[in-house]
């Protein structure tokens, strides 16, 4: 994505696909121009080469590019794609596509298209399903696997036990009614906020959903939200209140558990929707919580 930097002044062509409707290249180009970016930018919409349903899954298109499948007329997907983009190139030095240029081998696809177009190709992240997200996830799991980490996904943690020192000793996950114990030296809580259901709430107030950690909130329930949908709502900041090692604190200001660390949406204090800071908060807290948890283990 780096060649797509907005501070870069090389002239740019944005390409959208008829099938992938959530990225409208001409519109995006107009908006960028209106915003006064330091480069010339044009947008073009082309048909994705090959025969696909109008609403074909983007993963399917990505794989067609990655495997460079036959796209008819004896030419491959990438060849035909480059053919279709070339007439729009003008003197653009870089070309942006929605982020569907392959999965694990995106760099190969990007290099190949760059060469065919004689312009540096980059990707523009779009809404879900997000291939950059899927790639990150794959890399995460690969790294975890290499590090010898045990993983289980898809079943909720429903209960926990603590030892005499108040450390979390084990957690229980639920598999269709069966309680399965899991034990670790440290636990990272990354269950999301109100939307992700990591924070619960009822008449008595909000509470962290798995371990019941304290979630600060105004006593007056009327003060939980402001006027209007986009106001500065208190509830938007709901989440656990962590110390500098990201351990959730109880109402008295001491850690709820010595070996529990919080990351992502469950951490309170920021209105990430208004700030558009959700990814930043998640990445930063994830890094710190992971590192401090590792010190416990």
């Amino acid at each position: 994505m780096a060649p797509g930097l907005a501070s870069d002044d090389r002239s740019t062509l944005l390409v959208g696909f008829e099938a992938a409707t959530d990225f409208d290249a001409p519109l995006a180009a107009d908006r960028l121009t209106a915003a006064g970016v330091p480069f010339d930018v044009e947008g073009a919409t082309v048909a994705f080469p090959g025969e696909y349903r109008a609403d074909a899954a983007v993963t399917r298109l990505a794989h067609a590019l990655e495997r460079d499948e036959d796209a008819g007329e004896g030419r491959s997907t990438r060849q035909r794609l480059a053919d279709r983009v070339r007439p729009h190139l003008g003197d653009a030095e870089r070309v942006g596509f929605p982020a569907i240029l392959g999965d694990a081998h995106v760099e190969d696809v990007r290099a190949d298209l760059s060469e065919r177009l004689d312009a540096e190709v980059f990707e523009i992240p779009t809404g879900p399903p997000s291939l950059p997200g899927i790639r990150l996830e794959d890399r995460l799991f690969e790294a975890l696997d290499e590090a010898g980490v045990s993983m289980t996904t898809g079943n909720p943690v429903v209960d926990h036990e603590t030892d005499a020192d108040g450390r979390i000793e084990r957690v229980y996950i639920d598999r269709n009614g069966a309680r399965i114990p899991y034990r670790a030296d440290a636990y990272v809580l990354a269950t999301g906020g109100l939307v992700g259901k990591g924070v619960d709430s009822d008449r008595d107030g909000p509470r962290e959903a798995v371990f019941g950690c304290h979630v600060p909130a105004p006593d007056d329930r009327m003060a939980w939200s402001g006027e209007g949908a986009f106001a500065d709502h208190a509830f938007a900041r709901f989440g656990v209140d962590p110390d500098d090692r990201l351990r959730p604190l109880d109402a008295g200001g001491s850690p709820e558990f010595a070996n529990l660390f919080a990351a992502g949406g469950v951490v309170g204090g920021a209105d990430v929707a208004r700030e558009k800071s959700a990814s930043g908060v998640s990445l930063a807290t994830g890094l710190v919580a992971g590192r401090t948890a590792a010190e416990e283990a």
């Binding site: 879900p128 997200g133 939307v195 992700g196 992502g264 558009k276 990814s279 998640s282």
Partner: peptide, 15 residues
């Protein structure tokens, strides 16, 4: 992974 959805949900209208 629910965290990831939390993230995008707040940024744009995901439906």
């Amino acid at each position: 992974m629910s965290d990831g959805h939390d993230t995008h949900h707040t940024d744009d209208d995901c439906g």
